[in-house]
Design a protein around this nucleic acid. Structure first.
Lengths: 110, 110
DNA sequence: TTTTCTTGCTTTGCTGAGCAAGGTATAATA
DNA sequence: TATTATACCTTGCTCAGCAAAGCAAGAAAA
């Protein structure tokens, strides 16, 4: 199903923080993981992801480290800082609250 | 719980369309209904709602009609057009798809 | 009676998220 | 050799939500 861009606002941040709550990942990997896990519902764009990662790094939520892959390709791995972990938990709770409130409102005309 | 503005993007449209799927309502009433039903999770702002209503009316999703209340006050009631009803159903499905996809992704580190 | 609060609709201008569209560079594959 | 996939980055646009303001009338309180 296609959906309007506007629905993604805010979800991208939660998505990044959630993925990195599990393990360190590099950008391209996050794009693929989001697509895979959501059965292609989420097709995050590079122009969305990379600037978001940079912004979150500047904000002190993430730290980045270059690593070589087996193939010799350089990848920029991101992981959460302590501040980032707290932020992830906060954002996650916010999402769940909004989501629950929306379900409550939509339920009326199910 | 307070939440970041960004999470509301997109939800306001679904909210309006959903409320009007039940019955015609006027703007101020929608503000109160959203707050009441969501247990004060949603505090829609006037600067958000009214421009959205105007935009949706221009787009042909809503039609407006002034009516007098018992107290003699004029209220602008909005209702869905046929196009609006189709749009409401589409937006609702989109929201549910996004919501489900997010839950699938977030579930990993519950 | 005058002030204040609540109801009810409207508008202007700002901010900031997502994205299209472009770019660079290397490894694998045809 | 040419193409595809991997992997990163950036500029400039659009558009949604909102703060902040205004207007007007009825209700309540002082």
């Amino acid at each position: 199903m296609d959906y309007d861009r506007e629905f993604l606002t805010g979800t991208v941040g939660v998505l990044i923080l959630s993925l990195l709550s599990e393990r360190a990942m590099y950008g391209y990997e996050m794009l693929q993981e989001a697509e895979r896990r959501s059965a292609s519902q989420f097709l995050m764009k590079e122009g969305t992801l990379y600037p978001a990662l940079h912004q979150m790094e500047r904000a002190g939520f993430l730290k980045a480290a270059w690593r070589e892959s087996d193939s010799g390709r350089a990848r920029k791995y991101y992981s959460l800082t302590a501040k980032g972990r707290r932020h992830a938990e906060s954002k996650r709770r916010q999402w769940e609250a909004i989501s629950a409130a929306m379900r409550a409102i939509l339920a009326a005309n199910g």
